[in-house]
Computed example of a mutant assay.
Amino acid sequence: MAPTPANPTPASPSPIQVHPSRVRVLHPGGGRETAGPVVYWMLRDQRLADNWALLHAACLAAAAVPSAPVAVAFSLFPRPFLLGARRRQLGFLLRGLRRLAADARAGGLPFFFLEGGPAEVPALVRRLGASALVADFSPLRPVRESLDAVVGELRRDAPAVAVHQVDAHNVVPVWAASGKLEYSAKTLRGKVNKVIDEYLVEFPEMPTTAQWNMEQPEDVDWEALIDRVFSEAENVPEINWCEPGEAAAMEVLLGSKDGFLTKRIKSYESDRNDPTKPRALSCLSPYLHFGHISAQRCALEAKRHRHLSPKSVDAFLEELIIRRELADNFCHYQPHYDSLAGAWEWARKTLMEHAADRREQIYT
């Protein structure tokens, strides 16, 4: 398994102005006489709008001579990776993907659903004769290992295929914000604020690419798929107040009836930590987690609505950018992010010092 380079080659500037440091070249590919389609391997950023990874894939396709088409592929990770995800999360994921697939089809963009997981990606790339694979960024170990395996297989079996990775999840790409593990929000904040204006920009329009006239994706029986996945998942009921999908996410952010920025932002600064006042929350976390909305879009719209409540908007931007992206920094640079071995020494020391403290309640 070929490891992902620690400092992959920065990509060249693109015609649609995807910031070059947002893109990493994991394998340069090349050597083809004709350009095949570009495949965008969607994982963490499950949306068509405001998606730097999809934009970069379209840019590569548009720059080919002649212009190449673009396809989207989503691989459902196997159950071990989804361990801990209940029906509530899995239902939100799959119902959101069903909406996305319909939107992609309406826009002439083929959407390949790979139920067998990341192992199916190289075969799809080879079958389509793709010239490039563009992957999402995630700092989590299973995703990184899967990406390494895909890159290694393509290097071996399809060396002409370029592989790029795009951080479309963070406003400032994790590797551009800092080159090391940050100690706190304070240390990351200073670094992010120095470069935020470079990255917090409006998204360009999608470039024109060639029409898709190749293999068509198989139809997905979404209800059967959901039933099958649910049969293997723990039964934590789905919720009815939070609809998945891009349109629903934008309604929560900007809706005229109960949008966060249009109707509820004023109480965010003072009441967001009060559990008796849930309306003070943005309610955007599920959409940000599954990538149904871009954090960058949320930040841009928040800045436009700052006049409604400057303090609340500033507090929201602190949580949305600094605090949220600090978590990505931790998982990206701390290999033991999921165990106490990854905690700072003072934290482990404090836990040990108080391990014998008497407690009113003892939990398993």
Score class of each variant (00 low, 15 high):
234 E>C: 03
234 E>F: 07
234 E>L: 11
235 N>P: 03
236 V>W: 13
240 N>R: 14
242 C>D: 02
244 P>S: 02
245 G>E: 10
245 G>C: 04
249 A>K: 12
250 M>Q: 11
251 E>H: 12
251 E>D: 15
251 E>G: 04
251 E>P: 00
252 V>A: 12
253 L>Y: 09
254 L>F: 04
255 G>V: 10
255 G>L: 08
255 G>F: 10
256 S>D: 15
261 L>Y: 03
261 L>K: 05
262 T>S: 12
263 K>W: 05
263 K>E: 08
265 I>A: 06
265 I>E: 01
265 I>S: 04
265 I>W: 05
266 K>E: 11
267 S>L: 09
268 Y>C: 04
268 Y>W: 07
268 Y>K: 02
268 Y>G: 00
269 E>S: 15
269 E>L: 03
269 E>G: 11
269 E>I: 08
270 S>T: 15
271 D>V: 02
271 D>C: 09
272 R>M: 07
276 T>I: 01
277 K>D: 13
280 A>H: 03
280 A>S: 14
281 L>A: 13
281 L>P: 02
282 S>P: 04
282 S>A: 10
283 C>I: 05
284 L>N: 06
284 L>K: 00
284 L>V: 03
284 L>Q: 04
285 S>F: 05
285 S>R: 12
285 S>P: 01
288 L>K: 08
290 F>A: 02
291 G>M: 10
291 G>D: 06
293 I>A: 00
293 I>F: 07
293 I>W: 01
293 I>M: 04
294 S>E: 06
295 A>D: 03
298 C>I: 15
298 C>D: 10
299 A>Q: 12
300 L>R: 09
300 L>A: 10
301 E>D: 10
301 E>W: 06
301 E>C: 06
302 A>D: 07
303 K>P: 00
303 K>S: 05
304 R>A: 14
306 R>D: 01
306 R>Y: 06
306 R>C: 03
307 H>K: 15
308 L>H: 12
309 S>Y: 11
309 S>I: 07
310 P>I: 14
310 P>G: 13
311 K>C: 03
312 S>I: 09
312 S>Y: 04
314 D>H: 05
316 F>E: 07
317 L>N: 04
318 E>Y: 14
321 I>Y: 08
322 I>G: 00
322 I>C: 02
322 I>D: 05
323 R>C: 06
324 R>L: 00
324 R>K: 09
324 R>V: 00
